[in-house]
Write a protein that binds this DNA or RNA. Sequence first.
DNA 1: ATTTACTGGTGGAACGTTGCAGCAAGGCTA
DNA 2: TAGCCTTGCTGCAACGTTCCACCAGTAAAT
Lengths: 351, 351
Amino acid sequence: MAGVTIYQVAREARVSPSTVSNFLNGRPERMLPETRSRVAAAIDRLGYRPNRAARQLRTGQNQVIGLVVPSVANPFWGSFARMLERAALIEGYRVLLCNSERDPERERGYLDELWADGIRGVVLCSSLPSLEHVLPLVDAGLGLVAFDRTAQAGDPAALVNISVNNAVGAHLATAHLLQLGHRRIAFVSGSLRSVNRRDRFRGFTQAFEEAGLDPAGAVVWSGGAEQEPYGDLDAAELGRKAARELLAAPDRPTGIVAINDMCALGVSAGIRDAGLAVGRDVSVVGFDDIVLADLAAPPLTTVRQPIAEMAAAAFQHLRSRIDAPEGGPSQSLLMRPELVVRASTGPAPRE
Amino acid sequence: MAGVTIYQVAREARVSPSTVSNFLNGRPERMLPETRSRVAAAIDRLGYRPNRAARQLRTGQNQVIGLVVPSVANPFWGSFARMLERAALIEGYRVLLCNSERDPERERGYLDELWADGIRGVVLCSSLPSLEHVLPLVDAGLGLVAFDRTAQAGDPAALVNISVNNAVGAHLATAHLLQLGHRRIAFVSGSLRSVNRRDRFRGFTQAFEEAGLDPAGAVVWSGGAEQEPYGDLDAAELGRKAARELLAAPDRPTGIVAINDMCALGVSAGIRDAGLAVGRDVSVVGFDDIVLADLAAPPLTTVRQPIAEMAAAAFQHLRSRIDAPEGGPSQSLLMRPELVVRASTGPAPRE
DNA sequence: ATTTACTGGTGGAACGTTGCAGCAAGGCTA
DNA sequence: TAGCCTTGCTGCAACGTTCCACCAGTAAAT
């Protein structure tokens, strides 16, 4: 045990514990320079580090935020976790990591745990349509930033939503394929239960409508049976399976919009499994722009999320919420996505 | 604030706080069944959750472990983080995430922070040759599992090392290429400063020697200048750059052993940049077997690490260390890697 | 000379647990 | 009947902070 306390520092510096505490907590100007340096020297000499548990018990504050992601094994969430942690670290906050596997039960369990740990700010990457399993805690004062989810009717005022504009993103992706002459386009996703996925699907159909086409003609592949929930690890496997099934059909699509990059990479693998060439026989668009999108063969055309800005914004909102729990209703943020054209998309092959 | 305390529960149940505490902490048999159910009912009715900070202050224990990885944005570390978190969760532990970016300064800073937070168990994925920047804390009682690093002379007895046998892994990879007839083989890595990388390099040269070849003839590309540290994000970029440089040389290699899968995927991209075909013109072997290895085109031949077992083992060791801080010197673990042959390797092209 | 204000501190009660020591009541032994 | 053990519970101090209230000393204002 380390266990050098504020009392020992006080004795060493020949002051009272209160003075040491004052020194530590932003009121060093309330003492003579001479005292100040005596305290500083004592702290240094003894290698004193404040006991965080005691501090938290006393103040009710701590410097930890929670992060709940579907699975940090998915590179998109991995990157997000890293950037959020980075943003947090700069301000002296630490990040507790939770993998929900998209399971509402686990999600709720995690938030309860975090609350019991005295954590008052959480970034929840849930995108479940309803957050009601979590609202009691928000009412109790938990600062919550919902990531990758747009504001829904009935959301409490205290809730901040940060998301890319998923409809616009999917629209971008789909319009890109349409412009390349593709007409038989499939939308590949797991179940469409989550908000962001529904938004993306909406963007998909809107692009059809704007092109004067009937979206009903588009193929939607959403995991066959609704055997939810599934982890994000399987997104790739899902895409592969989707590609296999879609390409075996008589009127196989020439373009595929995947729900995210992992799925798109799976789709690409599936296309190759079928002996076809990605970008020539079948075009694929992803979503996220993970690092690997550019490394794939062919490099993946995708919709980029400004992940660094989003992570920074998520932390900032959380932070101001923690500092001023009763602050007014907070703004939700809807970022602009960007289409990154690479080689996984090309002109529709002529029949 | 939630803030229902053990006192309120006690009053509600018409017992003393001590009794409630006894109920909560494993001594429920020390009271009449009737009392027990009264307490249980009160807890339930009030929605009481123990205050963890207070508990930690009192007992010095908490249920949190630290995880320090180079960068969770790297899918390998992402997967590892997820599995460690899963193993921890089962036993009621939470995981605090830290990205060191392979910077010893940051590493040390993180461990200090974790220690100040009262965390007594950390999985450190460092692989820096020396852990001396961290030893004072181990001496002070911090449970430390070093992951991806083999035991070194001078390591304290309390330190547990868990790693795959990197030498064997790299040997496997290299022998595979040699067997396919490759003779001009390059080893691509960032700097070779870390233990695991040196081990892998050793396996690489050993395979040459066993084949009766002079390892001095092999090309070693290790990042040009030693401009360390670099984040793992850049592993791919590094590989790409390496491939470009290596393939521009007069006697270009026909086989490349990459330090890990991200690097290998970068190398593959670089090979394609040069207009060559991976697996035919140039063979590539990775290390780790991340999920994406199988999705790449062509799928990546690689050395698999038994990541799930390693994560579980890491947690178990940590846990027993936390429960019995003065336990005897602990075993280090050296797991067996496995070569997974896919299509990124093929027979050496004839000249 | 008295009040008022400020400066540079100190004292001590919390924060919510835990766990040891103790205690009342009943039962057993001698 | 005294002594002692056991059962089932309670009292209280401690864990290491913080921060409000207070205080002694000096200086300025009345």
